[in-house]
């Protein structure tokens, strides 16, 4: 055989592509199955569809004691029941084999990461800290308007002039400025602030790399989800909270004492 297989070959069955995804990390603080179930149930009552088909990384570093493979399987089962899809286990090497047996990826612990880079994604009253971080994965990303430019500096600002439509995702390592509208089902992600000079009807996640000082400014607040530095809130017009008063208005959203605050601009 003297044929070489290169990715340039026109008959190649696939192509590997890098993509940046926001993944939810479930950081386990206790191996007690019943309290896990209880908390998951409480969460899905609040936001019934939030975890449907959500890829989740299970982080084990914060567990007070090691758990056995049997318990791990049971935990994975509970996550699945609540609609999440376990894609990886993040832990010390000791769980590497378990991850392999469970058919999911293994990621090394991130203990070494400075606290500043860790994004805690938790709903104000929720005791499960769910963490969100980006990870590069070799797979194809859908309809991304703008991917981080190779070699772009972390503080780079992006300006998007066209509408961001349903199914699109825009990421900026620094601030993200959208001059048009953001449709329901669209997602904005920024390491820094997010400014939207049109109606914000989709999701906006600012400070995704763990910047609690990031803010979200929008000309017309009609968002589906707001998140700053991992603290998130599902929003809707009819929601019974002080937030619904600001629906359709020009607002500023910031994080103070681990809570999201909204105010009129």
């Amino acid at each position: 055989m003297n044929s070489t297989l290169t990715s340039k070959q026109s008959s190649a069955a696939f192509q590997l592509k890098g993509g940046i995804y926001t993944l939810t990390t479930l950081e386990l603080h206790s191996s007690c199955l019943s309290s896990l179930s209880q908390q998951l149930k409480a969460m899905s009552e609040k936001a019934p569809h939030f975890f449907q088909q959500t890829p989740v990384v299970l982080a084990l570093e914060k567990l007070p004691a090691a758990i056995d493979a049997h318990t791990l399987t049971a935990i994975a089962g509970r996550l699945r029941e609540s609609g999440m899809i376990l894609v990886a286990i993040r832990s010390s090497e000791q769980y590497k084999l378990s991850a392999d047996r469970a058919g999911v990826a293994w990621l090394p612990s991130q203990k070494a990461r400075p606290e500043k880079n860790v994004v805690m994604m938790k709903q104000s009253e929720q005791p499960i800290p769910v963490e969100s971080h980006e990870s590069a994965q070799p797979s194809q990303k859908n309809e991304t308007v703008s991917e981080p430019m190779p070699g772009a500096s972390a503080s780079e600002t992006r300006i998007i002039e066209q509408p961001v439509r349903s199914g699109q995702q825009v990421y900026a390592p620094g601030d993200l400025i959208v001059l048009s509208q953001v449709s329901p089902g669209a997602e904005l992600l920024a390491g820094g602030h997010i400014h939207v000079y049109g109606p914000l009807r989709g999701r906006a996640l600012a400070g995704v790399k763990g910047n609690p000082k990031a803010r979200i400014f929008c000309h017309r607040f009609e968002a589906e989800l707001i998140s700053i530095s991992g603290q998130y809130k599902l929003t809707c017009k009819t929601e019974q909270s002080s937030w619904s008063r600001h629906w359709g208005k020009s607002v500023l959203i910031k994080l103070a004492a681990d809570h999201l605050h909204i105010s009129r601009l």
């Binding site: 309809e143 991304t144 439509r165 349903s166 199914g167 699109q168 089902g185 669209a186």
Partner: peptide, 14 residues
């Protein structure tokens, strides 16, 4: 309307 919005996004990117 939602599906049309989605198609507009695809026209813009694909």
């Amino acid at each position: 309307v939602r599906d049309s919005d989605r198609i507009l996004g695809i026209l813009q990117s694909k």
